Computed example of a mutant assay.
Amino acid sequence: MRALQKLLTIIYAAALSSSLPSFASTDYPNRPIKLIVPVAAGGGTDFTARLLAERLSAALAQPVVVENRPGASGNLGVQQVATATPDGYTLVMPITSFPINPNLQKLPFDTVKDFSPVILVGTLPLVLVTHPGVPARNVGELITLAKNSKQPLNYANSGNGTTAHLAGELFNRMSGIKMVSINYKGGGPAVTDLLGGHVQVYFSTIPPVQQHIESGKLSALAVTGTERSTELPQVPTVAESGLPGFDVTAWFGLFAPAGTPLAAIKRLNTELVKILAMPDVQQKMTNHGVQPAGGTPDALGAYLVRDIDKWGKVIREAGIRAE
């Protein structure tokens, strides 16, 4: 796996340093930019994309137009960008399954070779929540309960192969337990059944369950990132709760077609770094459960390669198959 990761990183470096269409950086952009969002309007992905598009339009003095292209688990819109002219005028912000899908599906594009990374937009930690009827108030107690229970615990997920699903399987593998996964078509039905006590555990993004945590209808045991969440600062991480190294963080990144001129990538990255550092932008993203990120294009490329490798291992070990 390390050899594969090294090879993919080399591919990224080669793509970014190869002979690309040239133009003076001062010429870009001179017309509107299209930002493809591969989900329907509404929701965290769409909100984040529109927030960045608004600020980027002002910074570039050119319209950045968001176009929603839902379908095929987010792959329809992504494919459109993979085959677009690599001139800096077509971008995509894939959904959080972007690094997972290559391990589950035969895709009409190459997730690594067909895109030029621009910037890591933001990260989305999950929170491990349980129904209050589950007699466990921390990760250690949950693991002990699962090991000693005559009937296996079950956990909801928001769809086969989603981050919520893989979080549960990684938790199983690292803790030595075997909770049973119950598939739902989206996070809404999963939360509804968790509130009703029909399932016991769920790895959720924070906004859909925060009010239920605050009201006591759900118990928050831990967050899944490497640091505590600003939205739930009193809740420890899974890693500090007894499973060191546990890290499940969904993310949004901005990509262009492979071969996009470096001058365009650099201009976009420079402006977006500034935008993501704006206090009001950070507050608005945080309110939607997204922790603003930033960094270089190379950093996003490495992030993608790492997660493809990481989730591929979890998927193979858990025997997960595309539905």
Rank of each mutant, 00 (worst) to 15 (best):
I177K: 05
A156N: 09
S149D: 15
I143C: 06
A167I: 10
K178N: 13
S149V: 14
K147H: 12
I182C: 11
M174T: 09
G161N: 02
H165P: 00
I182N: 13
G140L: 07
T163P: 01
L166V: 02
K147S: 13
L170R: 06
S181H: 02
F171S: 00
A164I: 02
G168H: 01
I182Y: 15
L142H: 03
N148I: 06
Y155M: 12
N154R: 04
V180Q: 12
G161L: 03
G176Q: 13
S149C: 13
K150S: 12
L153Y: 14
Q151T: 13
G159H: 01
M179N: 12
S175H: 02
A164S: 14
L145A: 11
N154W: 02
R173S: 07
K178E: 10
L145N: 13
A156P: 06
E169W: 06
N160D: 09
G161A: 04
F171H: 00
F171R: 02
L142C: 10
R173G: 01
A167D: 07
N138R: 05
S149G: 12
E169F: 07
I182D: 12
L166N: 01
T162M: 10
M174G: 06
A146C: 00
N138C: 07
K178W: 00
N148V: 09
Q151K: 05
N138Q: 09
T144D: 15
H165V: 00
S158N: 11
G168Q: 00
P152G: 06
I182M: 15
A156K: 00
N157L: 09
E141P: 00
T144N: 15
N157W: 04
A164Q: 07
V139Q: 09
I177P: 04
V139L: 12
L166C: 00
S149E: 11
K150R: 14
S158E: 10
A164F: 05
K178T: 15
K147P: 12
S181F: 07
L145Y: 14
A167Q: 06
L142P: 09
I177T: 15
S181D: 13
G168V: 05
A156L: 09
I182A: 13
L145V: 13
V180N: 12
N172F: 09
M179E: 14
L166R: 00
N157G: 08
T162A: 11
N160G: 08
N172M: 11
A164W: 05
L145Q: 15
L166K: 02
V180H: 08
N138P: 04
V139F: 10
P152W: 03
S175G: 03
L170P: 08
Y155E: 07
S181Y: 08
